[in-house]
Computed example of a mutant assay.
Amino acid sequence: MINAVYEISSINYLDDKLIINNALSELAAKCGLQNEFDFGQPTSRFGWTFFKVWIKPNFQMQIEQRLADMIKKSKGSKHEEKFTNFLTDYFQSKGCKVKVKLVEV
Score class of each variant (00 low, 15 high):
Met61Ile: 05
Met61Thr: 12
Met61Glu: 13
Met61Asn: 14
Gln62Arg: 15
Gln62Asn: 14
Ile63Asp: 00
Ile63Leu: 06
Glu64His: 06
Glu64Val: 12
Glu64Lys: 09
Glu64Ala: 10
Gln65Leu: 10
Arg66Gly: 06
Leu67Arg: 08
Leu67Ser: 08
Ala68Gln: 08
Ala68Gly: 07
Ala68Thr: 11
Asp69Lys: 12
Met70Leu: 15
Met70Val: 11
Met70Lys: 13
Met70Glu: 15
Ile71Ala: 01
Lys72Arg: 13
Lys72Ala: 11
Lys73Leu: 05
Lys73Asp: 06
Lys73Cys: 05
Lys73Asn: 07
Lys73Ala: 11
Lys73Gly: 06
Ser74Glu: 12
Ser74Asp: 10
Lys75Asn: 13
Lys75Pro: 08
Gly76Cys: 08
Gly76Gln: 06
Ser77Thr: 10
Ser77Gly: 10
Ser77Asp: 13
His79Gln: 14
Glu80Met: 04
Glu80Ala: 14
Glu80His: 10
Glu81Ser: 11
Glu81Ile: 06
Lys82Ile: 04
Lys82Pro: 00
Phe83His: 00
Phe83Val: 08
Phe83Thr: 02
Thr84Arg: 00
Thr84Ala: 05
Thr84Gly: 04
Asn85Met: 14
Asn85His: 15
Asn85Ser: 13
Asn85Cys: 11
Phe86Pro: 00
Leu87Trp: 02
Asp89Val: 03
Asp89Glu: 11
Tyr90Cys: 03
Tyr90Asn: 00
Tyr90Asp: 01
Tyr90Thr: 02
Phe91Val: 04
Phe91Arg: 01
Phe91Thr: 00
Gln92Trp: 03
Gln92Asp: 04
Gln92Tyr: 04
Gln92Asn: 13
Ser93Phe: 07
Lys94Cys: 11
Cys96Gln: 03
Cys96Tyr: 03
Cys96Trp: 02
Cys96Ile: 06
Lys97Cys: 13
Lys97Gly: 07
Lys97Gln: 14
Val98Gln: 02
Val98Asp: 01
Lys99Gly: 09
Lys99Asp: 13
Lys99Leu: 13
Lys99Trp: 09
